[in-house]
């Protein structure tokens, strides 16, 4: 009679003592910053501004989005890598481009794998491979035939040196045994405009930016990356079906934090991020951005990132691509 009571009492005491302790370790002492290393208006920025108010509600502290553009996102990433290791400075960015950075920029001022720690993946948005209607090709096979018959005629518009859509066309051209010019533009919108205007002929770009032109007939969609065909254009095959490499090419958006931050806080952020990504309104907005929710936690993110640093590094070395 006596002992169980003591045990229950002790358990209760322990539970009470433990509760605030865990709550303390998992609670945020001050405002949290989400650094977006690009100018406002892009996918990363939109995601950060969608997530910030929800996270603010969940953790009871102000969550501020801070745009720190420049250097292909490396300036903002560097700032988070060097922030205090207290879990209050987050980084939301295109992690595919970040995975390219170590092999493209030998002088990178931080190590994305050592100085930054993953919180969770957020979204994957596939690429559409589209061509100008001036190119007489309705399929990858016809594109290859045209490229081989007219060497030097095709130009691929990319959104800037050192981005995923600069490296992907190079991989694809190599696999198809064709040659095309890689023409860099200042951003995806300028690249899209160039292909719609017929200045360049081929583009690999995000679904939301490209599909309206495909539906309108101003661009012809030849393939989409990602695991499955897109419901909006069911006739366009996937990269895998069209025997193209880089089937997982696209935009991967993820949330990171300064490495060495308290594991309790990272676990809390992971849990809150999963809850937020499960909200129907957030999933709906992510679908509007042309993507799908990827609520992978830190472990899956970490191995994805390591794999990509390795494979993209090989592509960069094999093709002699230089970031600067």
């Amino acid at each position: 009679m006596f002992r169980p009571f003591v045990m229950i009492a002790m358990a209760a005491w322990l539970a009470i003592a433990a509760l605030p302790a865990t709550a303390d370790a998992q609670s945020f002492g001050r405002a949290v910053r989400i650094v977006v290393p690009y100018a406002p208006g892009g996918s990363s920025d939109i995601l950060a501004r969608l997530i910030a108010p929800k996270l603010q509600e969940a953790i009871g502290q102000a969550v501020v989005v801070e745009n720190k553009p420049g250097g292909s996102g490396n300036i903002g990433a560097d700032a988070v890598a060097k922030a205090p290791k207290d879990g209050h400075t987050l980084l939301l960015l295109d992690v595919g481009t970040l995975a390219l950075a170590p092999s493209l920029f030998p002088d990178l001022t931080f190590d994305p794998q050592k100085d930054l720690a993953p919180v969770g993946m957020i979204m994957f948005a596939p690429y559409v491979l589209a061509v100008s209607p001036q190119v007489p090709a309705k399929s990858i096979a016809e594109l290859v035939a045209f490229a081989k018959a007219n060497p030097g005629k095709l130009a691929v518009a990319n959104s800037g040196i050192g981005g995923m859509n600069h490296v992907t066309p190079i991989r694809v051209a190599k696999a198809l045994g064709i040659e095309w010019k890689n023409v860099p533009y200042r951003g995806g919108a300028a690249a899209t405009r160039a292909v719609v205007a017929g200045e360049s002929q081929v583009i690999f770009n995000g679904v939301s930016a490209t599909l309206p032109f495909v539906k309108n007939g101003q661009l012809v969609g030849l393939a989409v990356s990602g695991p499955a065909r897109l419901p909006a254009v069911p006739d366009v095959p996937t990269f895998d079906e069209a025997k193209l490499p880089a089937g997982d090419a696209g935009t991967w958006q993820g949330l990171m934090v300064t490495a060495g931050s308290p594991p309790e806080l990272v676990a809390r952020l992971d849990a809150e991020l999963r809850k937020i990504l499960a909200m129907p309104d957030i999933a709906g907005k992510i679908a509007d951005l042309g993507g799908t929710v990827k609520a992978d936690g830190p472990a899956a993110f970490k191995s994805w990132f390591a794999d990509n640093v390795r494979t993209l590094g090989e592509v960069v070395r094999e093709n002699g691509i230089k970031g600067e």
């Binding site: 501004r49 969608l50 939301s208 309206p212 539906k215 907005k285 509007d288």
Partner: peptide
């Protein structure tokens, strides 16, 4: 896009 309108 945040308002669910597809520009194009």
């Amino acid at each position: 896009m945040m308002h669910g309108i597809q520009p194009g």
